[in-house]
Simulated assay, not measured.
Amino acid sequence: MSTQDNYDSGRGSKKPGKNARKKSMARGNAPLKNEGAPRKTGRQQDPTTRSKPKLKFDKDGKEIGRRPKPVVQVKKSNPADGIRLNKYIANSGVCSRREADTFIATGLVTVNGEIINEMGHKVQLGDDVRFDGRRLNPEPKTYVLLNKPKGFATTDSNSKGMTVMDLVANATTAKIKPFGRLGRNATGLLLFTNDDEFVQKFMKKGITRLFHVELDKNLKQEHLKKIREGFKIEDKEIQVEDISYVDKAPKSEVGLKMKHTGNSVIRMIFESLGYDVVRVDCVTLGPLTKKDLPRGRYRHLTENELNLFSMA
């Protein structure tokens, strides 16, 4: 059989012959990809889903065209609206809110002297709320000791310029007030508290305080003796616990121990005898001292210190 016969025989049987030319897969002959067929991925894609647009930024680095997230307005409670009476009672540590409702209904609670039976009644922190005759305080009892510097008025009024309240503003969230007074230019220990029972107790009996007083001239021995024995000024009896010269200091400096809670009485004493007070410094207040308490700083009283006060 000739070579041509072999070739024709291969074409007729649709099988390539021994010497048949293979189909080339060179460029131009490669099969075309099916552009309409979706890509096979691990997760089936939705052909209707649009791709995310590319982020664009302006010259300041801020995104352009991005929709801002809506701001959710949270309504804050207004302290001026007051707090519910049962919560006020519960915060004072007397009982739970549910029990407080029972006490309110039975007429055991008064607000500013009036019996309140209304459920949901609201009160202010400054109201006089009493349970079975005892005044309640919805805040924990707080006691703060300050070593007062010069230039601050002893008041909680905002109309007096710089006050001692500015110095203890970050000490506590409780509504504390100064107990006793020190003049604007006086220095030393000053106590703050929200404990009304404590204040009432020591307003009546007083707290012994030791003052370091500096005068414009030496204090005469006869005047020192007169102050120690007590005397009257404008029909007002002046009593001190003790007075003495300060050791290793001029005779113009004295230590004065007394229970008066006011500061003006010190100037009254010495001015009545012909002296001007140059400086007043409260060195001790009851069992408290200035140890480890720099000028202008404050600290909270310890449990042991409170026990010493209760023994007084």
Score class of each variant (00 low, 15 high):
269 I>S: 02
72 V>F: 06
98 R>F: 04
281 D>W: 07
211 F>S: 05
281 D>I: 06
51 S>G: 10
292 D>C: 06
60 D>W: 06
118 E>C: 01
256 L>C: 03
54 K>W: 09
58 D>I: 04
245 Y>E: 00
213 V>G: 06
276 D>S: 14
163 T>H: 00
34 N>S: 08
182 L>H: 01
124 Q>C: 03
125 L>S: 10
144 V>G: 00
23 K>W: 09
238 I>Y: 06
98 R>W: 04
66 R>P: 00
271 E>Y: 03
62 K>T: 07
29 N>Q: 11
86 N>E: 04
7 Y>G: 04
202 F>A: 00
190 L>Q: 07
175 K>Q: 11
166 D>R: 02
243 I>K: 05
308 L>C: 03
202 F>S: 00
260 H>C: 04
213 V>Y: 05
237 E>K: 12
75 K>Q: 15
213 V>D: 05
102 T>S: 11
286 G>T: 03
274 G>W: 04
117 N>K: 14
4 Q>H: 10
304 N>R: 10
291 K>F: 08
123 V>W: 06
242 D>T: 06
5 D>I: 10
259 K>Y: 09
154 T>F: 00
4 Q>L: 11
3 T>V: 13
304 N>E: 13
273 L>M: 12
280 V>D: 07
115 I>R: 15
203 M>V: 13
51 S>F: 09
156 D>A: 15
21 R>L: 14
6 N>D: 12
20 A>D: 09
219 L>T: 12
147 N>H: 07
225 K>W: 06
239 Q>E: 13
129 V>A: 07
12 G>L: 14
69 K>H: 06
240 V>E: 04
146 L>T: 01
281 D>H: 14
49 T>G: 08
252 S>I: 03
2 S>V: 13
42 G>S: 10
99 E>R: 09
31 P>L: 10
98 R>C: 06
25 M>L: 13
125 L>A: 11
